[in-house]
Amino acid sequence: MTIELEEPRLEENSQVAKDLFGGTIGGIAQVLVGQPFDTVKVRLQSAPEGTYNGAGDVIKRLMATEGPKGFYKGTITPLIGVGACVSVQFSVNEAMKRYYDKSLNGKELGLPQYFVCGATAGFANGFLTGPIEHIRIRLQTQTAETKAFDGPIDCAKKLYRANGLFNGIYKGLSPTLVRESVGLGIYFATYEALIKRELGKVKNITRDDIPPWKLCLFGGLSGYTLWIGIYPIDVIKSKLQTDSLTAPKYKGPIDAFRDIWARQGVKGFYRGFVPTILRAAPANGATFAAFELTMRLIN
């Protein structure tokens, strides 16, 4: 009797470990492909109005002052951190899918269920990705003239000394949680809808039969819907996470929203949108393809 109870639990724990590993590989792929785009995006989002004339201007200045390595500033933090974040995203999403599969007695999940799976994964992930992104953004936006941090550990220490845990390291948590919940709900629901559509087009094929290039395509399209849906929230988050540590301009996300609206109107919430959309397809295509292919190998 004891063995019968333990075997399913061991099998479930093993699957969770596999999901975490697959997500980690997907996260590493995402960082390596998407970091240069993200650096350009963050510079555009956080710089004072008029600093840059667009994404091309950021690229030219980075190349002139810091060379190609400038596009990978702060990469160590996301390489470790995003790997962990994406592993949480995918493992929680897969766990929620298994939960719904059991509760629906094997019936197919619909888009609302897939959205809830992704949103739950996003909310759980928000507590991890919040401080990681904060540290990365501080490192990405500092220049040789404004250098204040000697790396991710030094940055974390100084953020904590300046304002403590919540207002320092976890600054911008509330918009991060909203962005992750809504965004990943859209993200995973879009991907699953595309997978379901593909499986319905051809008889007698399984998920494992879908070629890698289509996984990249579906991941890229999912990345588009993610960022189109939540980009303004990301701008507010970036404003909070690049605010002064000693004399902050914003009291919170609402204050940042009002300031952006008053100064720039609607267009202020879409600064840096072009590099983000350019990044969405390759970065998210690589993420899903890496995850799916890794799961095929280890399952």
Results as ranks from 00 to 15, higher is better:
Lys107Thr: 06
Leu111Trp: 12
Lys107Trp: 05
Glu108Asp: 06
Leu109Gln: 13
Phe115Asn: 03
Gly126Glu: 04
Ala121Asn: 12
Ser103Thr: 14
Gly106Gln: 07
Asp101Thr: 14
Thr129Asn: 07
Gly126Asn: 04
Gly118Asn: 13
Gly126Met: 03
Ser103Gln: 15
Leu104Asn: 10
Asn105Gly: 12
Phe115Lys: 02
Gly122Arg: 02
Glu133Ala: 11
Gly122Met: 07
Phe123Asn: 01
Asn105Gln: 14
Leu128Tyr: 01
Ile132Ser: 00
Asn125Met: 13
Ala119Lys: 03
Asp101Gln: 13
Ser103Pro: 00
His134Tyr: 06
Ala124Val: 10
Lys107Gly: 03
His134Thr: 12
Phe127Trp: 09
Gln113Glu: 14
Ala124Lys: 01
Cys117Gln: 13
Phe127Glu: 01
Gly118Trp: 11
Pro112Asp: 09
His134Trp: 07
Gly126Ala: 14
Thr129Gln: 08
Leu128Ala: 01
Pro131Asp: 10
His134Pro: 08
Phe123Asp: 00
Ala119Leu: 10
Gln113Thr: 07
Lys102Ala: 13
Ala119Trp: 03
Ser103Val: 14
Leu128Phe: 01
Gly122Asp: 06
Ser103Gly: 04
Leu104Glu: 06
Gly118Tyr: 02
Leu111Ser: 08
Ala124Asp: 00
Leu128Asn: 02
Leu111Pro: 11
Phe115Ser: 03
Val116Trp: 08
His134Leu: 10
Leu111Asp: 05
Gly110Thr: 08
Leu109Asp: 01
His134Arg: 07
Ser103Tyr: 14
Tyr114Met: 13
Leu128Trp: 00
Phe115His: 03
Pro112Glu: 09
Ala121Leu: 12
Thr120Met: 12
Ala121Ile: 11
Cys117Gly: 09
Leu104Gly: 05
Phe115Thr: 04
Ser103Ala: 15
Gly122Ala: 09
Val116Tyr: 06
Ala121Glu: 06
Ile132Glu: 00
Gly130Ser: 15
Phe127Asn: 02
Ala119Glu: 07
Ala119Asp: 08
Gly126Ile: 05
His134Gln: 11
Glu108Met: 01
Asn125Asp: 12
Phe123Val: 07
Pro112Val: 10
Val116Asn: 12
Tyr114Thr: 08
Glu108Ala: 07
Ala119Tyr: 04
Ala124Gly: 04
Leu128Thr: 02
Gly110Tyr: 00
Ile132Gly: 00
Val116Met: 14
Leu111Lys: 08
Gln113Ile: 04
Tyr114Trp: 13
Leu128Gly: 00
Gln113Tyr: 04
Asn105Lys: 15
Pro131Arg: 01
Pro112Trp: 02
Ala124Tyr: 02
Phe127Thr: 02
Ile132Thr: 03
Gly130Lys: 02
